[in-house]
Amino acid sequence: MSVQATARITAAPDGCGSTALPVLESDGPLALRRTRSAAAGRARVTVVGAMSAPLGGDRLAVEVRAEAGARLTVDSAAATVALPGAAQDAGPASYDIRIEAGPGAEVRWLPEQLVCAHRSALTMTTRAELAPTARLVLREEQVLGRHGEPTGTLTTRLTVHRAGRPLLDQQLAYGPGASGGWDGPAVLGGHRAVGQLLVVDPAYEEEPVPPTSLGPTAVLTPLTGPGVLVTALAPDARLLRGLLDEALERLSPR
């Protein structure tokens, strides 16, 4: 029996210099908790329940809305593991994330890794719509297979629009269901952990970040518009996180 669930978060300024959560709706395996935020003025939500999902055939979604001036961090308590469904013909699971950030709003989307277990099939879609003055920090990490096992099939698409114009559109496809060459010398070169860190900040319009090589398997690239994408490959999740943490540190305002 496959699951269909949509969790919703809306963040809005509370009028006292901080951020309230007028909508915080858990659904099915997606349990949301308001957690203590390290930064003043910012609300933090932790997704605690998706560890055993998505299974084949599941359709999960998280909708995040940050209204004008709101500051929100969303993270997760543990890695998400995509697993094969019980039914042979369950089809791929889907996991859709929608992020909307209004004028002056800031969303930090920093979940733990997505682990793609053997024989799993998942299509993950992340769409962000940003107001021209909104800020976004978004991290995605894909780990292909649990320790020592072959990977399942994973397709991800990350689409970001700013002021209604396309800023970034990226599709990645790995695993036995992907087109040929995904593990070859043009795409992954045998690496099993892949990550993206996207930072959109209107301040980059005044002070562009130069492209920077972060070693042989990671790069920081300024987009056409006030955004920076870090693309990184590593042999495993821990080394990948190290690369992305270093990049995030580099991109954080002093």
Binding site: R157, T159, D169, Q170, Q171, L172, A173, P185, A186, V187, L188, G189, V194, P211, T212, S213, P216, T217, A218, V219, T221, T231, A232, L233
Partner: peptide, 13 residues
């Protein structure tokens, strides 16, 4: 919008 991480990484270097 299919992309290849290694192509992006190595192009800059």
């Amino acid at each position: 919008a299919a992309s290849a991480p290694l192509l992006d990484i190595t192009a800059e270097a």
